[in-house]
């Protein structure tokens, strides 16, 4: 679907050690992007499914903040067995969720000066997708971005898009 392929001459790919057909060759960055996009998509579907099953018997949400709180408490506990540690919002559609001990990072070890943070980053795509999928299932369109500056913490930034006026 959104996977971009570029046609190039044979052997133009810089991806080391990978043999490819001559017709479509992606460069390394594009290939990474495509992988990340697919990971995000996997998370999105999982998030949608989870919310469908686990928000069924709870009272109706009052507003977006209510939904975000559900995410921080219920969904996070369901997926990561702990709650979000800190939630900030500018009250204009931006929410920043901080998890000081993000589970997927909890057992990552790295030697000093290694690029641990950089190498942990790809593990955030599925969780981002889960959050975006969960929000979508609850009627909120948003972009979700996550990053880590120091393991094992992770910061998720949610920007909700204003609902179209009816």
């Amino acid at each position: 679907n959104a996977v971009v392929t570029v046609t190039g001459p044979p052997g133009s790919s810089s991806t080391a050690g990978v043999e490819r057909g001559t017709e479509t060759v992606m460069d390394e960055d594009e290939e990474r992007e495509a992988v990340f996009w697919r990971l995000e998509g996997i998370g999105y579907r999982v998030g949608q499914g989870l919310v469908e099953r686990f928000s069924r018997d709870r009272p109706r949400f009052n507003d977006t903040l209510d939904v975000i709180k559900f995410l921080c408490k219920d969904l996070w506990t369901l997926v990561f067995r702990k709650q979000i540690d800190n939630l900030k919002t500018n009250h204009r559609g931006v929410y920043v969720l901080t998890d000081n001990a993000f589970r997927p990072f909890s057992r990552m070890s790295a030697e000093a000066n290694s690029q641990a943070v950089l190498r942990a980053q790809p593990f955030l795509h599925v969780p981002c997708g889960i959050v975006r999928g969960a929000l979508a299932a609850l009627g909120i369109t948003a972009t979700v971005h996550a990053e880590t500056t120091e393991l094992p913490s992770a910061v998720f930034q949610i920007k909700t898009l204003p609902a179209k006026a009816a």
């Binding site: 697919r38 998509g41 996997i42 579907r45 999982v46 499914g49 989870l50 099953r53 686990f54 369901l78 997926v79």
Partner: peptide
């Protein structure tokens, strides 16, 4: 368990 089921299912779909 549902998280596992959904994740595995989604991987197969992908």
């Amino acid at each position: 368990a549902e998280l596992v089921v959904l994740t595995y299912g989604t991987i197969v779909v992908q």
